[in-house]
Design a protein around this nucleic acid. Structure first.
Lengths: 146, 146
DNA sequence: ATAATTATGATAATATTTATCTAATTATTA
DNA sequence: TAATAATTAGATAAATATTATCATAATTAT
């Protein structure tokens, strides 16, 4: 998804809901768009406060909630930190290296089979489109003992 | 694992490390033991403060950290709340109903195949022994629209 | 351009977690 | 069993994170 098409979707979605497009909302959306897939809350706050120091912390929180509510953005909780990313891409998951912190994408197809099996065996329908799986990437596995 | 054997392991582990068994640590461990598998932090605080109001909040936090460090207890973060449970049982996972909050156990074998596939395909070794999978249980799926 | 309504910023309240320090408690040794 | 050395708990408060309130400013439709 291009930045332009997301911005377009954002504006029309907001307008359809009778809500408002504001510079703050646009800026924060832009920061997430430039976040290269995922961006932690902390980093969003940092960048926003540099780009536009007048934007208050409550506004950042409110805007992130807002963007999630209108489903333009999704939040992904990993340990103690929340990551944000643009929604609408194909559902996918993350392999997170517990040593170096690298995030790798795991396509949904790789997991679909498991979810299907769980539904058949347990009558439980898992509906997560963002799963964080911790472990060690190949690099860190080679250069460490545990 | 029986309550007695956990308490025994706890005491000997603590002593081996040259650390101390205190009533506070025992009480908090007992609360977790009686937690029927998993118990959220909030509930631990609640119960501890009823059973022994003198125990301070910092002590509860410290003790939980402590129990995790000596690997008697494991913490499991689900959304905004931390759950605690006795370690040492076979690794297992959880199916968490996002509507009614029910936790169901998912044995590790069900997931092993996926982790193996991920290791072969991505050279990434997932090492999570507690995964929380959100979704809808069969009951809630029948009685709701989304 | 104006009116109606929403969103923002400022402020502060709340919640959560962690740090610091003194006093009490534990385990060891004599 | 008593004394000692070291750890732990409680009290306090500080740091961090998040949310509520409300007057003002900004946005959108007309």
């Amino acid at each position: 998804m291009s930045i332009k098409s997301v911005s377009k979707t954002f504006k029309s979605t907001v307008h359809e809901l009778g809500l408002r497009v504001t510079p703050q909302r646009q800026l924060i959306l832009d920061v997430i768009l430039e976040g290269n897939g995922h961006i932690p809350l902390q980093k969003i706050v940092e960048i926003v406060q540099i780009k536009s120091p007048a934007i208050s912390l409550p506004t950042i929180y409110r805007t992130l909630d807002f963007l999630c509510e209108i489903r333009i953005v999704i939040a992904l909780r990993v340990g103690n930190t929340s990551y944000f990313e643009i929604a609408g891409d194909h559902p996918h998951h993350h392999l997170i290296c517990r040593r170096c912190g690298a995030l790798e994408i795991l396509p949904h197809v790789d997991i679909q089979h498991l979810f299907g099996k769980i539904e058949r065996s347990y009558k439980f329908r898992v509906d997560m489109d963002h799963l964080g799986l911790f472990g060690l990437c190949s690099h860190c596995r080679q250069t460490s003992t545990n």
